[in-house]
Design a protein around this nucleic acid. Sequence first.
RNA 1: GCCAGUGUAGCUCAGUUGGCCAGAGCAGCUGAUUUGUAAUCAGCUGGUCGGGGGUUCGAAUCCCUCCACUGGCUCCA
Length: 646
Amino acid sequence: MVKITFPDGAVREYQPGITALEIAKSISEGLAKKVLAASVNDQVWDATRPIYNDSTLKLLTWNEAEGKSTFWHSSAHLMAEAVESIFPGVKFWVGPPTQNPPGFYYDMDLGDRKITEEDLRAIEKKMTELSRQNNSYIRKDISKKEAVQYFEEKGDEYKLDLLQSLDDGAITFYSQGNFTDLCRGPHIPQTGLIKAIKLTNIAGAYWKGDENNKQLTRLYGITFPNQKELDEYLQMLEEAKKRDHRKLGKELGIYTMDDDVGQGLIMWLPNGTVIIEELEKLAKETELKAGYKRVVTPHIAKESMYLTSGHLPYYADSMYPPMEVDGEKYYLKSMNCPHHHKIFAAEPKSYRDLPYRIAEYGTVYRYEQSGELFGLMRVRCLHMNDAHIYCTREQFASEFRAVNEMYQKYFKIFGIDKYVMRLSLHSADKLGKKYVNEPELWKETEEMVRQVLIESNIPYVEVQDEAAFYGPKIDVQIFSVIGREFTLATNQVDFSQGRSFKLQYTTPDNSTETPLIIHRAPLGTHERFIGFLLEHYAGKLPLWLSPVQVKVLPISDKFMDYAQNVLESLKNADIRAEIDDRPEKIGRKIRDTELARIPYMLIVGEKEVNEGTIAIRRQGKGDLGSKTVDAFIEAAVEEIKARVAE
RNA sequence: GCCAGUGUAGCUCAGUUGGCCAGAGCAGCUGAUUUGUAAUCAGCUGGUCGGGGGUUCGAAUCCCUCCACUGGCUCCA
């Protein structure tokens, strides 16, 4: 007998070779119908795989993340089966489940054939048909030799490539219906569990993600155990589109772009400019308190500086091509740091000057590939909340920690709680190519950063090959409403440019040292940050950031004089206010103001004129009752000053 | 950059198999209405159908090309 330990601690005995599915059946038929996979000794297994040893067991259903991913992985196989029946001779690469966006894809080589939207519908139909056959997913151990033979006969060079990296004895095939695939598994018991199917899009994907390789066709899809969940998912996507920053940016008059100006170049409209100015005000206040000094630098510089900085060897692909002036090459700056280093170097520094912190909302230009551009989130001209801190090795930890604290302070103001802190490390095999070739300094500084994170109790994940060329960094990763991941803010160490620029300070014993440099941008760039905020707040910006904070709505023209007086009082209190002087009914004025996401509506009619008050209405919340103008102004000014997040 | 899709008025969209002056709603303008918490009524204006080239008696519609936008370009069996 084998002893099975359940999550609640209960232990029961079964015949050796029992499967998780059979165990589920012995508990209840209803449960058995929901089981997608099983966690056996913390490994995800097929629910139909026999268990011969004492084990812990957790049944996995749609409610568990592993249940979902197994379901989608099996869906990818089902899609492959459908594709193969419609397009015989297709060769497959890999078909994993995905979390973000949820679902799965399969990469395939269709030769010269092209897949169209109609083909997707045909594949969906075929998948439904195959699902109705309710075929079992069958696991089979196979020797490497047999596996190679199978795919040689099939002529699938991609699977053969995969097999090369696998060890004999650890290779399995999975089959369902007429489809067999090299696969680690696990899979759900039968195809019939996949009831609702939607193939979402067709895309090109370079083999192994390398643009020098052949481009394969990638089909994306999502499936659910029932139609209702699929409908809800599609509904949710529709809702997400409504808070897409590109849609809100247009509706609220935040920014615009124009073919004649160029791709990825944002023009901020008056409303967007108000947001920018408020953000800069916040940054300046915060940085002043934290001991930063402000600087301003030009948008271009000579080639020689970027050779010194290392941008040209390491970062040239991301820079606009140079322009030639008086026989010299000038580049648009892609980063502010070299200019700032020159400011540091402008006067001799002593240890007494450190930490030396200089800040600038710097405009930089980056040549992003046209296909990468995305609304405000990925653009070619950006305004960075940039600053550089030059410090000693001893000062590093406290300076780096102070920057992290500044992040936290900002995140609190904006109510940002869904993000991932990522410790971005270098990749040793790219030293001298993507990263400066200083293996020891990389190790040392990476450990310094890790220690600060641990000491500050900041949860983080470590990721290889995402560092800056000059050092490791912490990135704050956020997600756009359509699920794309972006770096919002960044805090970087630089052990390289200080030496390249021969930056020095005099130590107490009159020798010279090179400072460490921290690059930091807690508010990222205006472009990405405002794009994020629009989605984060669904366009309903907090009062302090709203381009128009208050709209005065007279019931009719008769009360226009009074409304003008109210407007004057608001303006005198530095509140951004407007008056709706159209000859419309009050219901219409309210509707339009609500849709413009203006936080406060002050309604004035006969009653208010007689009583010397205003009727207050809050966007999204409705009527808040009456107050005197002065009382309203006092409260509103307080709300603005405290930057209440709403 | 590459793969796929899209491009009709400021916005959201119609435009049958190529065929009369390219339509609607909203916005805008003009006039009437003077209104109490999410759309008052009427009239009018507005479009090189993304740009260029081609096929045709005839092109928003078919073909070529360029541009822009949208989704994707390792979450590795």
